[in-house]
């Protein structure tokens, strides 16, 4: 990866592109399982454009980021260092975590918040091959009836729901697509 590659791939017009990318994140978190398009980032592989956009939109020097082994690569590190400036952290300190589902295990290493501050939990950005076809159906806040979704695994997400109001919140990313699953969502296998 050349120096030029590291310096490129961020938002060209940060305020406007970050605003659009955030709206995709907001819609995703507000309507669990529903797929949103998120654009503007061109990060180095294996980081997806969607995950790159989430990082550019939400992560900075105040938010320790845990890179799972799948994404703990020099090119990814350098790109994040240049564009986000996020300190890399162990799971226990992570405000955000990034990686494939397998590489992020065990989830129990990431904070789930405290009874007084349930918001102090890790948000996990899970890179997927694709966000379809659905293998689960979701219910809960943000969902009018039932929402089909593709999840990397179902049992541990059911267990996460049991922790409410504590727990992890997830973004699932693939290509230019993003979906989310907050701790309130109840997944069920299709």
């Amino acid at each position: 990866m050349t120096q030029a590659d590291i310096l490129s791939g961020g938002f060209a017009e940060a305020p406007q592109q970050a605003a659009r990318a955030f709206r995709a994140c907001l819609e995703a978190m507000a309507r669990p399982g529903r797929i949103q398009r998120i654009e503007g980032a061109h990060p180095p592989a294996p980081l997806s454009p969607a995950a790159g956009a989430v990082l550019l939109t939400l992560v900075d020097s105040t938010t320790p980021l845990c890179l799972a082994p799948s994404h703990d690569l020099p090119a990814v590190r350098q790109w994040i260092a240049f564009h986000c400036g996020a300190p890399l952290a162990e799971p226990a300190q992570a405000v955000f975590a990034l990686g494939t589902w397998e590489a992020l295990q065990p989830l129990s290493a990431f904070p789930i918040g405290t009874p007084q501050y349930p918001d102090r939990s890790t948000t996990l950005i899970v890179e997927m091959n694709a966000l379809s076809p659905p293998n689960a159906v979701l219910t809960g806040p943000g969902i009018e009836d039932r929402q089909p979704a593709r999840l990397p695994e179902i049992d541990s997400l059911i267990a996460n729901r049991e922790l409410f109001p504590l727990g992890h919140d997830f973004f699932f990313t693939a290509g230019f697509e993003i979906a989310a699953l907050p701790r309130t969502t109840e997944p069920e296998a299709l």
Partner: peptide
């Protein structure tokens, strides 16, 4: 970014 992070946690809880 700081406000956006808070909004997402707000929606999650």
């Amino acid at each position: 970014r700081m406000i956006r992070r808070a909004l997402l946690k707000g929606l999650a809880i």
